[in-house]
Design a protein around this nucleic acid. Sequence first.
DNA 1: CGAGAGGTTGACTTGCGTCAATGAACGTGG
DNA 2: CCACGTTCATTGACGCAAGTCAACCTCTCG
Lengths: 254, 254
Amino acid sequence: MSPPNKATAKALCNHPEWIGRADCRQCGILQQVLFSDLSEDDLESILDGIFEPIDQYGYPPGTVLYHQGGQDNAAFTIRDGLVKLVRYGPDGDERIIRLLKRGDSMGLERLLGDSYEHTAIAVRNVKVCRIPLTVMQRLNADKPRLYRTLMEHWSACLFQADDHIMLLLSGTVRNRVINLIRWLAKVEATEEKGKVELLSGKEMASMLGVTIESVSRVIADLKRKKVLRYLGSSLYEYDANALNAYATAERKAS
Amino acid sequence: MSPPNKATAKALCNHPEWIGRADCRQCGILQQVLFSDLSEDDLESILDGIFEPIDQYGYPPGTVLYHQGGQDNAAFTIRDGLVKLVRYGPDGDERIIRLLKRGDSMGLERLLGDSYEHTAIAVRNVKVCRIPLTVMQRLNADKPRLYRTLMEHWSACLFQADDHIMLLLSGTVRNRVINLIRWLAKVEATEEKGKVELLSGKEMASMLGVTIESVSRVIADLKRKKVLRYLGSSLYEYDANALNAYATAERKAS
DNA sequence: CGAGAGGTTGACTTGCGTCAATGAACGTGG
DNA sequence: CCACGTTCATTGACGCAAGTCAACCTCTCG
């Protein structure tokens, strides 16, 4: 439970790091997550009674949280970071279906089916709460009100899927990339406005359904046009106005 | 309530046609729809107590069932036909986000938000049950079990959205069209196997994110290769084996 | 009969995928 | 500390799939 030093952290790379027992009563993002609709008393009485604990974990980028078809008996809430849900095509090529951010849930399909629908992989350093299915089921049985929050999470996923189709899978590569950047800029609660941390080329390509090279060319072009400025370690400073302008104006002279 | 003659039907074009009060106890597709998890007694007692009725309606192709942003206080279950959920891009171009079939629900987002997320338009002749929100809410409050079915509907939508991304918005136009045809063939409970009723070119194009011309060329080619045979009024006979073969084999000599 | 909508086809253009070479960043082992 | 391999980003040359533009056809409906 004591924080590991740097050497230890390195050794743990690609292994889950247990952070601590979750204290849902003190949860900083409680408003956004699964139990937001329960009163403090409800929560108290339930959390005291359960036998499977809700634990927090941290994972470095690239860690697989669960596999498509896997049967771990848990759903997850993201406390921090970014997680990609992927599927694999016939050739084994990875396709990013959804990108989840702080406050989103994943693995809820285990409440209904007997395995996960996607493979979940950490994109950044990620902190999650692992919620055993038994807890979910128990809560659902005792406090039907919780279902409303669950529905809201389903609906949010669906909404993102729709946006994905409209914004990230339509039009020219240029527009897709720009829309993705805008999405990332919106999602990331970076300290300062005007900065985004982009994904790897491969990841962006696999989100947008285009090639790595095409993405790279667009980014290079945006840099040349001073819409983006590279700050190091995939962090960029961006000109929001120019970005929005490009997103709407389809054609643009060099 | 008596069936209208042809002239009347014509006059009703683009207007809802009331079919009758729904008798949920006798519903032929009960297993698939929203109330499938309730016992007969539950259903009985609830349906007797409600003051807003569940009505059935029929609509001809092209009818708008509800508008994006609209606030009608109802959700719908599709008893027969095909409904497209669309959104409009900045240029007013229509994009099909989802295609709903018999047993699917639409408008469930009204349980959570204050307006519809899409515009719903009948693609074929459609029969729906209109379920007032008050009924849904009342049922949810009385019979929390119903929530499970609701979750299953959300999850099914999400699943379709994911498939949409993987199968209909990835790869060559050729593959997209073929995957769409296979989806339609699977969904349509046509009397005889081996026949599909395709959508209009515009509709297929707007589902697949490609141009009408491209779709037309692929279909023409499939006809030339005897994979499809036109039977009239957008009904086709298809060679399932050839279709599956083409779907996997990416490149094909002429 | 004419008007309009939707489908088909051809010629042309182009955006983007493919292939390949090069360079930058990083980790590993000698 | 440097040499090396690996992975990822960048850039150019090339070709093709698909978009664009336009003509023409069919079918329906008034």
